[in-house]
């Protein structure tokens, strides 16, 4: 099983290999990027407290999971890591030509400047949102045509919600 895991906006390729039967009954090997795989063991109790061991190193942790996000308290700090769905990962890598504008934070739609069919230039304001009394302007990520405005004025949304979609571009 292989996935991309996001930690502090850096992506790491993590692969778990099974070495079943024969000598290593049920033990797993974990490979990070293309480094040598190491034996790995996670032992936590029902409150999420325990230890993680990777090769010769280990540390105590407390963790909780919600969907694809793993929250870990370790080294006296708190982290959140996201396991990225492979299709979304592949889709996001189509070099910055994405026409999706996502909410940078949770909030409310205050003002909408475009309608479906409008032609916009890169940087043009499309929508104004408000969060905690701060106004933010959502601008067009590239030249294009507005395909869909997903929310109405006054509607609330969570972080990463798609606000405006630009139409797919012609032949790459």
């Amino acid at each position: 099983m292989r996935r991309q895991i996001d930690l502090h906006n850096n992506h790491f390729e993590v692969t778990v290999l099974e070495k079943s039967g024969f000598e290593r009954f049920g033990k797993k090997l974990l490979q990070i990027e293309k480094n040598a795989p190491q034996f790995v063991d996670l032992a936590v109790n029902e409150t999420g407290e325990g230890t993680i061991q990777f090769g010769k190193q280990s540390t105590s942790i407390k963790m909780a999971v919600k969907g694809e996000t793993v929250f870990i308290h370790a080294f006296n700090r708190i982290f959140s890591l996201n396991i990225i769905d492979p299709i979304e990962h592949a889709a996001s890598k189509v070099g910055g030509r994405s026409g999706l504008s996502r909410a940078p934070m949770p909030g409310t739609v205050v003002d909408i400047n475009v309608v479906e069919g409008d032609q916009v230039k890169k940087g043009e304001p499309m929508m104004t949102i408000e969060s905690m009394k701060m106004l933010t302007v959502i601008k067009a990520p590239r030249d294009g045509e507005v395909a869909q405005v997903h929310l109405e004025s006054g509607q609330t949304f969570e972080k990463n919600r798609v606000l405006v979609t630009l139409a797919e571009e012609e032949e790459l």
């Binding site: 099983m1 996935r3 895991i5 930690l7 790491f12 993590v14 778990v16 797993k28 974990l30 990070i32 790995v40 996670l42 936590v44 993680i52 061991q53 990777f54 090769g55 190193q57 280990s58 540390t59 942790i61 963790m63 999971v65 694809e68 793993v70 870990i72 370790a74 080294f75 982290f79 890591l81 396991i83």
Partner: peptide, 18 residues
């Protein structure tokens, strides 16, 4: 690097896909 590896390992093993 050591810290990153341990965090990634913990995340991977606790994720249901893995």
């Amino acid at each position: 690097d050591k810290q990153i590896n341990l965090l990634l390992a913990a995340a991977a093993l606790s994720n249901r896909d893995f």
